[in-house]
Each structure stands twice: as C-alpha cells, then as structure tokens.
Amino acid sequence: MGFSKPENILELTVENGVKKVKYSLVQTMILGFEAGAFIAIGYLLFIRVTAPLSPHLEGLSSLIGASVFPIGLILTLLAGGELLTGNMMAVPLAWMASKVSTRHILVNWFLVSVSNFVGAIFVAYFFGHLVGLTETAPYLGKTISIAEHKLEASFLQAFISGIGCNWLVSAAVWLSYGANDMFGKIAGIWFPTMTFVAIGFQHVVANMFVIPAAIFAGHFSWMAYLDNFVPVFLGNAVGGTIFIAIAYWYAYRKNESATTVSKMIKSMEKVG
C-alpha cells in the first residue's frame, strides 16, 4: 500500500484545489449535488443502524453509527463529488500557492454550498419524508434527538464544534490524496471521519440533511436551522483553512525552502 510524504501531499492538494475552481458551472453543481446526497445517505445509514439499539448502549451505538457514516465521504472522494468542507481546505491551499484568486474561493464555496444543500435536501425529503425512512418509529425519535442536540448548541459551541469537525474531515481528505491505492484511500478517509462523528462535532453538510429531515417531520423551524448553519459553516471554514491548509503550508513549504537553501550551500562548497 503506497502513500506520499506530507510535503508531496501538499502539492497534490494544491493541484486538486486548482482543478476544483476550473470545473464548469454544470460540473460543479452536479458534483456538489452528488456529494451532498452521499453525505446525507451516510447520515441516513447512521440513523437506521443506531435508532433500534437500546438507550443503555449509547456509547456502543455512537461507535457503530460512526463506523458506517464514512461511506458518504468515501463515495464523494472516490466516486466523485464536490464537498464544501473538503474545498474549505484544498481551494485556500491553491490560493496560498498563488494558483487561484480570492474570487475563485468565494464563488466555489458558494456554488458548492448551494449544490450540497440541494443534494442533502433531496435525500431528506424524498427518502426521509416521502418514503418515511426518518419518520417512522424508532427512526423519527432518533432524527429529532440528533437535530435538537445540534440546534441547542450556542453560537460559540457550534462554531468550535465546527472547527473540530473540519480539522478531522480535511485531514481525511488530505490522507486520501496521499494514498496511492483504493484501500489506502478508504482507510485514510475512514478513521478521521469516524472520529469526528463519534465525538459529535458538527458538519455543515451533514446538518443540511438531519435538521431539515426533522423540519419536514414537523419539528423545529428553518430560522433555527439558519442560526445553526452560520456558526457551523464558519467553524468548518476555520478548521479546514487554518488548522490544515495554513498549518501544513507553513510547515512543509518552510521546510522545503530550508532544504533548497541547504542544497545550494552544499553545491557551492563543492564548486569551491
């Protein structure tokens, strides 16, 4: 199972960030829809496997749910999809490499946010509401409980939780870029994603599914959802941009520069 060194993953991530902003509008919207739907399906699977379990098995239930949720990110990264949280790391990294503009970042994040939302809402409404996969016992109770827990968080709590989430999700994307085969990519995606779900951090796209699913069932309001969306979006942006993109850019570009200078000095000594 081959893999790249972190400094090489940096270059691969920059290339992916550039590629993302070069997609046409239609490509971006289709791939964003797919990613939003894939993440929603992962959350739907989480609900379906954990809801029937006894409340006395809460810890085990969280672990089981967290172990199946990563299918959404695996499908997004391997089958194809544009996910907002991953783009919050890759596109700013391309900007730091002077490959894309600030406008590219803003347009990409906006289009992917909209298309992710449409994909997640599609699953919440058609599969969750119309088919009833989130609105029959015991699944409805689980859906409402999850949504309520997310909505009751204060702005600061949701913001910080969003940071933790995308620190791990962006790390998963980073590892997937660094693996050279499908098994390695799946393993790299699986464990960080499973960790953020088991901890309970908030993911802006996952929330696009579970909170609207509860709203379609007659609970909560769209204004309450908006109050959650803003801090989680901002927290996810900080987690991906600062804690992965900027951190690794500074760490590995700095080392690369130091290595280059060292090689130049050695070459000059040999010539002398």
Rank of each mutant, 00 (worst) to 15 (best):
F3L: 09
P6G: 11
E7F: 09
L12M: 12
T13H: 01
E15Y: 03
E15I: 06
L25D: 11
T28K: 10
I30G: 04
L31P: 00
F33Y: 13
F33N: 02
A40D: 02
A40T: 01
G42C: 06
Y43M: 14
Y43E: 11
L45K: 02
F46L: 15
T50D: 08
A51S: 15
A51V: 09
P55Y: 00
P55G: 08
E58S: 15
E58N: 14
L60A: 14
L60S: 12
S61R: 15
L63Q: 07
I64W: 02
I64L: 15
A66S: 13
A66E: 04
V68P: 00
F69Y: 12
F69I: 03
I71T: 13
L75W: 10
T76F: 01
L77E: 01
G80A: 11
G80Y: 06
G81Y: 05
G81K: 05
E82L: 10
G86L: 08
A90Q: 07
V91H: 02
P92G: 09
A94E: 00
M96F: 13
M96G: 08
M96T: 01
K99L: 02
K99C: 07
K99Q: 13
V107C: 01
N108Y: 01
W109V: 07
L111P: 00
S113Q: 03
S115R: 04
N116T: 04
G119Y: 04
V123N: 05
Y125P: 00
F126P: 06
F127I: 13
F127S: 05
H129S: 10
L130R: 12
E135L: 10
A137E: 14
Y139K: 02
Y139L: 07
T143D: 12
T143F: 10
I144H: 11
S145D: 13
E148I: 00
E148R: 13
L151F: 05
E152M: 14
A153R: 11
L156C: 01
L156F: 14
I160H: 03
G162P: 07
I163L: 12
G164P: 06
G164C: 09
L168I: 10
L168C: 09
A171R: 03
A172M: 10
V173S: 05
G178V: 06
G178C: 08
A179L: 06
D181S: 11
M182I: 14
M182C: 06
I186M: 14
A187S: 11
G188L: 03
G188R: 07
G188S: 09
I189F: 06
I189T: 12
F191N: 03
F191C: 04
P192N: 05
T193L: 13
T193H: 01
T195L: 15
V197G: 08
V197N: 04
A198M: 14
I199F: 13
Q202T: 01
H203A: 08
M208Y: 06
P212N: 03
I215R: 10
F216S: 04
A217W: 07
G218E: 02
G218S: 06
H219L: 03
F220W: 08
F220M: 08
S221T: 15
W222F: 13
L226R: 01
L226H: 01
F229H: 04
L234C: 12
N236D: 07
N236G: 04
A237W: 13
V238E: 08
T241E: 08
F243S: 09
I246P: 00
A247S: 14
Y250E: 10
K254R: 15
K254W: 10
N255I: 05
V261H: 13
S262C: 02
M268T: 12
V271E: 12
V271S: 12
G272D: 12
